[in-house]
Amino acid sequence: MAEHAADPTWGVLAEFASPTALYRACEQLRDAGFTRWDAHSPFPVHGLDRAMGLRPSRLPWVVFGGGMLGAAGGLGLQWWTSTIAYPQVIAGKPHFSWPAFVPVTFELGVLAAALACVLGMLHFNRLPRLHHPIFRSTRFEGVSDDRFFISIEAADPRFDPSATPGWLTQLGATQVELLAE
């Protein structure tokens, strides 16, 4: 498509017809040693993690840490308010009536874990990011509908503006375009 000679190239965008074609191409890119590239689809294609050679997400640890902090905070809050700040004998129960403290501890742990999960996911994905060179492509609007893409950044060491687009076509891309920064 249109390539503005004045603008530096951000990378190349290739369109594929089906998840199978996308998967196949991803395996090739992974094996060829590309690092700064991505696949795009309207839904997560099963197994593409493997095809792209991605390492497992570290999100579970973030969530676990968040959850533990939340639960500890909840228990600590209840312990402090009930034994130190405002101790009252209620219903004949001891000040540190731990069975009664379990519900709030649990709930705060869950809240902290859920927040850590969503915010962590957004952080790892570097979202929100409303502007991105890839949105310059009009065909890319189909990524949320029924089209599949691979994008390779020009910054990737293996990227060759003259050869890579052709190679992508050989891998099964139906359309290839260079994108400006």
């Binding site: 219903a91 004949g92 129960k93 069975p99 009664a100 379990v102």
Partner: peptide
């Protein structure tokens, strides 16, 4: 197990 215990503990 906890529900059974806590309710009995609480009702006393």
């Amino acid at each position: 197990a906890f529900s059974q215990f806590m309710l009995i503990w609480y009702g006393n």
